[in-house]
Design a protein around this nucleic acid. Structure first.
Lengths: 249, 249
DNA sequence: AACAATTTGTCCGTATGTATA
DNA sequence: TTATACATACGGACAAATTGT
């Protein structure tokens, strides 16, 4: 069942080139028995036979994965997987996106890409329990793990209650600490919804994804001790580099 | 920000046809301001201008979405969105995949596609806290909402403890009730991990997806009142038809 | 009823990209 | 490298259906 590439059929004329379908299959096969204990993939000729395609087509797939940094190949030796285990992000009542990665990465960092002061859209106003068009502050952030972009998030805060959240965040590089400076010493995640879609243009740029990559989208509302909404956020994760885990409350 | 298709760039030569990229954009634009209050899309000529492509290319994208059942078009009138709101599946300690859809669909159903009695793989044995190669019973199931396939799941149970789980499930069409017949009156979801990937061949067949579609994969362990693992499961959801929600414990 | 404007459906041809041998 | 077949993308022209005047 695992890593069984042989049964996987390819489809022609569906708008996705064969070499790209094969690339997706190889990506999925990695870590599921496709490579050997040394991280070496089967030779191109064998892969071509398994998929039932010409060796040139497999080479195109491998070239793309090398370009993405997933594989590396050495003439005469073979093609190898660059080790990159998926990060696991915890989701739950105590979710803090900046935390929860201990032991998984050496270095993590959240960049502030920009911030605005603007009226809330209908969606945001509802989520934050504000009057329509009441002002919010929007932060645009990017999370990196060991220098690799893994998340891209947008967060909205009620401007009246958190006028200085942007500068606090710029100073501390942490939502939890920026909220603490604003007088919020505890908060929890009231709800999170998760969906998946293809990366759009912003995603491919900010997360350094290849077009056609998949992003996991997590939308959530944080509330203070009294249950009042203090933050609405939408985070896009690279589905290749991240998985989410829901721990029992 | 919402429904802003104009800024979205297309990418040539990346192995994904333009018409397919445009199809993804339209799919994403639906519900975010692309269609008007009657569910009508902008005319093909206008979409072509926005995307900077030929009308034929837009037509190819629309044809694919019509084939998928997302759109419908009428000569001389326009192209319309077939209303189909995304299902929301709750994930949490009390997760029961068969439940939680009340009010969202008229009719729901879980089919048993097959079952086996087999030795556990290393992964399964670890998850269920079994000795290596101890026997498990595997159920293959498919969930439908109003006749449309939305989930495809595989569940493993310790064979020693639940010898008749397959026949119980075949009778009741519910995991909760099948476990109840096995003497488990309460259980909870200890952990869930969520990832996203492209649909493989099995997914496209069983969930009636188009090749290149996205699936959300949820892996979870259910434990009994004493915290002993009773079930490991892996469920694939069509990302187009489903979102997951994590409610606060 | 008649006509114009709008929009989708179909046909032609041509150039480029993808995949095989 | 070359040749071949098919999918993709473009451009234009016109037919068919619907709506508004």
């Amino acid at each position: 069942m695992e890593g069984d590439l042989a049964k996987s059929a390819l489809h022609r004329g569906v708008g996705v080139a064969l070499w790209r379908q094969i690339g997706d299959e190889i990506r999925r096969g990695i870590g599921a028995g496709l490579e050997d204990e040394n991280g070496r993939l089967p030779p191109e000729a064998e892969l071509a036979a398994r998929f039932g395609v010409n060796r040139h087509t497999v080479r195109a797939a491998i070239a793309a994965l090398i370009h993405e940094g997933v594989l590396r190949s050495e003439q005469g030796r073979g093609t190898y997987v660059r080790r990159q285990k998926r990060l696991t992000y915890p989701i739950g009542a105590r979710t803090r996106f900046s935390a929860g990665l201990e032991g998984q990465v050496r270095e993590r960092q959240i960049e502030l890409l920009g911030h605005t002061h603007e009226p809330a859209t209908a969606t945001i106003a509802t989520a934050l329990d504000l009057r329509p068009s009441e002002d919010v502050i929007r932060l645009e952030m990017r999370g990196l793990a060991d220098g690799v972009p893994v998340s891209r998030s947008t967060a909205w805060f009620p401007a009246a209650r958190f006028p200085d959240i942007a500068s606090y965040f710029a100073e501390k590089h942490s939502i939890t600490e920026a909220l603490a400076l604003s007088g919020i010493n505890d908060y929890r995640r009231a709800s999170t919804t998760i969906e998946a879609r293809h990366a759009d243009d912003t995603d491919t740029r900010d997360l350094k994804l290849s077009p056609g990559a998949i992003v996991l989208v997590a939308r959530g509302i944080n509330v203070d001790g009294d249950g009042r909404p203090i933050q609405y956020s939408q985070t896009r994760f690279s589905a290749d580099r991240v998985e989410l885990t829901v721990s029992a409350g």
